Amino acid sequence: MTFVVAWVSGKKEITYRDQSSAEVTRKDGSRSWRNNNPGNIARGSFSEAHGSIGDDGKFGIFPDEQTGSAAIVALFTGGSYKNLSIRDAFYRYAPPGDNNDTEAYIAAVTAAVKVLPSTIVSSLSAAQLDELAGAIKVHEGWRVGTQTGGAATQHMVASAMSAGGTVQKLIDLGSDADSCQEIRAKARQAMVQIYGKPTSHNACACTLSLFLQSAGFGPAKIIFGAGALAQYLQQNGWPKVSVGNQQAGDVGVCRDDDKKTAGADHIFLVVKRVDSDQMWIADNQESFAPHLRFASGKGGKTPVDYFLRYASHSLLTTSVTDQAARLDEIVTSDEETDGLVVISTSKATLSSPTDASPGRFTDAR
C-alpha cells in the first residue's frame, strides 16, 4: 500500500490512507513507530520535502519506515550537518536542552558505526550512514505497537461526489465575482451561529466550506475553524503540497506558529497561479472578489504554511460532530476582515496580476 495522507486519529493512534481510500491504523508502540519516523524528525518544510504525508503536531509522519530512514540520511548529508563532527552534529540534533542525554546518544551511535566522535559526518560512507540511521532508530526508542486495517477497509464514494463534484467547478466558482458575492453572503449569515450577527470576520473556513459544498464536494456541515477544516481535508485524502508548487484548485493553509491552539490562521481557495509566489485566490477578504495573494506573505499577510490538493478518491465523508474542534480558531482570530465593503458584482478578470490594485495587499530537528 502506498499511503498519501496520515493524521492523528486518537490517543497514541495514527491512521494512514492510500489512494484507494483503504486505511491502516497504528496504535500504541512508540511515537517514532506510529509515525514511521525513526529519527523523530520535526514536522515542517524539511520533512515535507522528504516525503512526510502528515504530522502529529510536533513530528512528521512518513508513509513507511524506509522513507523515514532516508530522511535521516538526507538530514545528516545536508548543509546543516555534513561538515560537523558526529559530536557536534548530535549536540545539534539532540541537544541537552531538549531533555536528551547527548553524550549517551553520541556513545551509542559511534559504537554502532564504529567511528570516533570527532569523525566528520561527510566522511561517512553510504553504508555507515545507514548504520547511523539504524542507531538513531534504536536510540529514539522504536517499539512496535498494534496495526489494524488494510485493503479491506474501503470507504464508499460520497453522495456529493456522485453528484458531480469537480475541481474545475470549484475553480469556476472562485473565479467569478458574482458567485463569490453569493457565497460570501451565505457565509456572513452562517457566522450568526458564532457571533450572533452576520459578519465576514473569522469566516474563512465557513466560506471555504460553502465553496466546497457548492462544487459538490461537501462537507455536510459547515466547519468554522480554519485549522479544523485543514485537518478535515487531510483526513479525507487531500495530501499536502509544498509552497511554490501550488496550482488552481488547491487550498492554502496559513498557520501562526505562536498560537497555542491546533488550528490555522487563514484558509483559502487558489483559483489561478501566477508564479511560485503570486496567485489569485477566493476567500472572505478583499471585499470578496477574487484577488491576489502572495504565498510568501508579502504585503503583511501570514505566509502560507502548505497547500492541500484534491486527489482522486478524496472523499469528504468524515463526520463533523466535535463542536470544540470545529471552533478551534474562532477563540482567537484569523486574519483581519473587519470593515469590508461590499463591491459591485461585475465579473472579475484573472488575466493579469495588474488587474488588482496594489494597495489591497494589506489584507526538523
Rank of each mutant, 00 (worst) to 15 (best):
L210V: 07
G145E: 04
L132Y: 04
I194R: 11
N99L: 14
D130Q: 12
L132D: 04
L208N: 04
S118L: 10
K221A: 09
S209E: 08
I171F: 00
A205G: 10
V157A: 11
A127N: 02
F211D: 07
A205C: 04
A152Q: 14
V167D: 04
S159E: 14
V144G: 12
H139E: 04
I120N: 03
R184Q: 09
L116N: 14
G196D: 04
G174A: 03
C180I: 07
V121H: 09
I183V: 06
L212E: 01
A203D: 00
Q213H: 13
D98T: 09
A187W: 05
Y195L: 09
S162T: 11
D98S: 08
G150N: 00
T102R: 01
P198S: 10
K114G: 11
V167P: 07
K197W: 10
P117D: 01
K114S: 12
K186W: 07
T148V: 15
I183P: 00
D176Y: 02
Y105R: 07
A220M: 12
M156H: 15
Q181R: 15
V113A: 00
V167R: 05
A111K: 15
L124D: 09
G174R: 06
A187D: 00
P95M: 01
S179N: 14
T119S: 11
G174D: 00
R143Y: 14
V192D: 13
Q193M: 15
A203S: 07
A177G: 02
S162W: 10
E103H: 09
A190F: 01
H201P: 11
R188T: 05
A126Y: 09
G216Q: 05
D172A: 07
T110N: 01
I194L: 07
C206I: 11
D176I: 03
A127T: 13
A112K: 02
K169I: 05
A94P: 00
A104Q: 14
A133Q: 00
M161E: 13
L210M: 05
C206A: 10
P96I: 09
A152W: 12
M161Y: 14
Q189T: 08
N99G: 15
V115C: 01
T207F: 06
G218C: 10
Q181F: 11
V121E: 03
L208D: 04
K221D: 11
A104N: 14
C204V: 04
V167L: 05
Q128V: 02
T199C: 10
S122E: 08
C204T: 05
N99C: 09
L132E: 03
T148N: 13
K169S: 10
T148L: 11
S209D: 04
G149P: 08
V115H: 10
I183K: 00
G149A: 06
S118I: 02
I136Q: 01
A160G: 15
V115S: 08
A215M: 10
A185H: 04
A220K: 15
Q147T: 15
V192E: 13
P198H: 01
A185N: 12
A152Y: 11
A215Y: 00
P219Y: 06
